[in-house]
């Protein structure tokens, strides 16, 4: 499929480098708004068109583009998502705008492949929702789940910074809608340490009376492998632990909690390895884009 990436910041540029390796997705252009941006210069040096006319460029070239990957900001996506759909362009949305159904690559990849707009939640959501789901599938109900994401200041671009409320709200929703928690909370922290820290994510899950703790731990280890299949730098930093409470959660009082301490080491495609937050987002978007392409191919054959 013919693709364009909109947004030439950290995420868009990293995604470009991954897409150039794809056998399924053909990158037509990296579209920005600043002709001087590092991302557009990088695109041109790699032989990719780098127009700076923003979303309008895509709409003007709608007949040449089947799918866009939006790496701008939630505000920009909200302003243009209907136009992409009207132009018949599938939109994979990497902002937390959450206009289309949410997809977490390790959990519900196949669910929304026909949707004109697919939302990739947030980097923290891609990292933690799989673990919430992993706990949920091992017990009967998950009354409450929480995630804390800490990213290096250097890897948080202006989009993330201006969208910080959207980040927490969209991530928290994903923990419920896709992770399967009854109630949830998401927290993001920026850490400016030098050298920059690797992206860290922690999942806390409320375990009701009678939960099978060994099944929970086993399910967490299995999910680590699933996510690693498309994000090789994703791993448990320490063994998952079950801590005794009691804990007075918004979903009710529980005797135990599971604590899952994750680290995401980036592949170093654009920003260095500390920027695992970029990597997990762009790797998940590639996985979704390729799945959409595969489903269109199989439809065409029918």
């Amino acid at each position: 499929m013919r693709c364009a990436i909109i947004g030439s910041g950290n995420i868009g540029t990293d995604l470009m480098i991954k897409m150039l390796r794809s056998e399924v997705l053909e990158l037509v252009a990296l579209v920005g708004i600043d002709p001087q941006s590092d991302g557009l210069a990088r695109a041109r040096s790699l032989g990719v068109q780098g127009p700076h006319e923003g979303p309008q460029w895509v709409l003007d070239h709608a007949s040449e583009i089947d799918m866009i990957f939006d790496a701008t900001s939630a505000y920009v996506h909200v302003r243009h998502y209907k136009q992409y759909a009207e132009a018949g362009i599938v939109a994979v949305d990497l902002t937390p705008a959450a206009r289309g159904p949410k997809v977490i690559a390790a959990v519900n990849l196949e669910e929304h492949l026909n949707s004109p707009n697919i939302n990739m939640v947030t980097c923290g959501g891609q990292a933690t929702t799989p673990m919430v789901y992993a706990v949920r599938r091992a017990i009967e109900t998950l009354p409450y789940a929480e995630m804390v994401s800490t990213i290096a200041s250097k890897s948080a671009g202006p989009g993330t910074r201006q969208n910080i409320d959207e980040f927490t709200k969209t991530t928290s929703q994903a923990l419920r809608e896709i992770g399967g928690a009854e109630t949830s909370k998401a927290i993001i922290v920026l850490n400016p340490a030098e050298p920059p820290i690797m992206m860290r994510n922690t999942v806390f899950a409320a375990l009701p009376e009678g939960s099978d703790h060994s099944a929970v731990i086993e399910s967490i280890y299995a999910m680590e492998k699933t996510v690693q299949s498309y994000v090789p730098g994703y791993h448990l930093k320490n063994r998952p632990v079950i801590e005794a409470g009691p804990f007075k959660t918004p979903g009710g009082d529980v005797p135990h909690r599971a604590v899952v301490l994750l680290e995401v080491e980036g592949a170093g495609d654009y920003l260095p390895a500390y920027a695992g937050n970029l990597d997990i987002m762009t790797a998940a978007a590639m996985k979704v884009g390729e799945a959409v392409a595969a489903s269109r191919v199989s439809e065409a054959r029918l």
Partner: peptide, 18 residues
């Protein structure tokens, strides 16, 4: 030593386990 900042209370468990 890790230069953690306010809000990173989860790292207390991480350090204790290590």
């Amino acid at each position: 030593r890790r230069k953690v900042v306010g809000g990173q209370e989860d790292m207390i468990i991480d350090v204790a386990l290590e």
